[in-house]
Amino acid sequence: MKILISVLSLFFLTSFKSSAQSSGKITYEIKAINFEPKKDAKQNELIDLSISTAKSQTFTLLFSDLKSSFTSNSGKMEEDMKEKMLNQLALLMFTCDFDYFLDISLSIELFKKEDGALIKNEYKKKEWKITSESKKIDSYLCYKATYSYTYLGRDNKTKERIITAWFAPSLPYSYGPKNYNGLPGLILELQDWDTTFLATKIELFDKEIEIDLPKGKTITQEEYERKVLSGN
């Protein structure tokens, strides 16, 4: 009887401790960029430079209760204009050209673009297709999920983009890289077009961490697109 009580106490203590870890900081690195310019393509040097810059970029996901942020760690170390532009190109072409902020309680998501624009959207949960395919990432058992959406390509034809995520149910936090979230576990690996993000450092905290949403004038996605395409 004494042994049973001890085991039950240990179980409840562990559960309580796990649920008390309500915030975290995840570092993502670029695992792979599966892109090679065609041999007869021009400006390969600039593309190659952008790829190597992109591969060295890292990102930080912070989450706490009902808020999260995903931000680039580059842009803080650049010393000169050339480096800054190369970094910008790498973010645009290969990794992530925005910092992302989510407030689930207010149902809003904010995209802070690399050109300074702040786009505000109503947050809508993504419809992921969860599969039974699994693999281990580090020591975590992860399952594969996909999400797809259509958009208008620059040739005015409808395109489809498929995002592949590997999430760990043992890390019950519905967050991930970029604006991809809503799975029943932390996304440890995410493939978006040619680029794969990989969580390389996971820090979980018992205390809630402060996540500040950016302040300033916000515009809609439509207004942003109009602004960019008008050349302003």
Partner: peptide, 21 residues
């Protein structure tokens, strides 16, 4: 224009992404 077509020979980018690049 060459950078853009090298990066996106199959026109997968949206107009906004392409214009920014």
């Amino acid at each position: 224009a060459d950078v853009l077509s090298s990066r996106d020979p199959d026109n997968k980018l949206s107009s906004v992404e392409a214009y920014r690049i």
